[in-house]
Amino acid sequence: MLSEFDKAILNAVQGEFPLESRPFAVLAKRLHTDETTLIARLTELKRDGYLRRLGAYFDSDALGYKGTLIALYVSPDKFASVIEAINRYDGITHNYEREGEYNLWFTLQTASESQRQIILDEIHGLPGVEKMLELRSAKKYKVRVQFRLD
């Protein structure tokens, strides 16, 4: 169970993490605690699976990458092998099984058009992939993964 202190920590680290030499100390001060306590608790929250990652998030377009969303219908008997093959690509960062006429949805980011096409052809050819939709992003309106804990 998360304590009020844990929730305060998780809400705070989802905001802007300080770009300063001692960022945990800065954050700790705001949370009325100290650097050592905050680092120890964050380590535990990560170990216990509440915190996925503390990191830098870049604008993929600005780095020269193009993103696309792919929807597949994969036959149930081949599901495991298709997932294994798909998850091996570094450019595929999100892969979700969903309910509905398309049951596997993943995102792909590549630095070139040819690389994108090669990967998609490989995936289209996997045994069990019965339907495939490519939904290229046109405009990004929001990417802000923040979950407020009350």
Partner: peptide, 14 residues
């Protein structure tokens, strides 16, 4: 180019 530095939760766990 950098959108932000910050944490992402395991939302299901949360």
């Amino acid at each position: 180019i950098l959108r932000r530095v910050g944490a992402v939760l395991q939302h299901r766990r949360a």
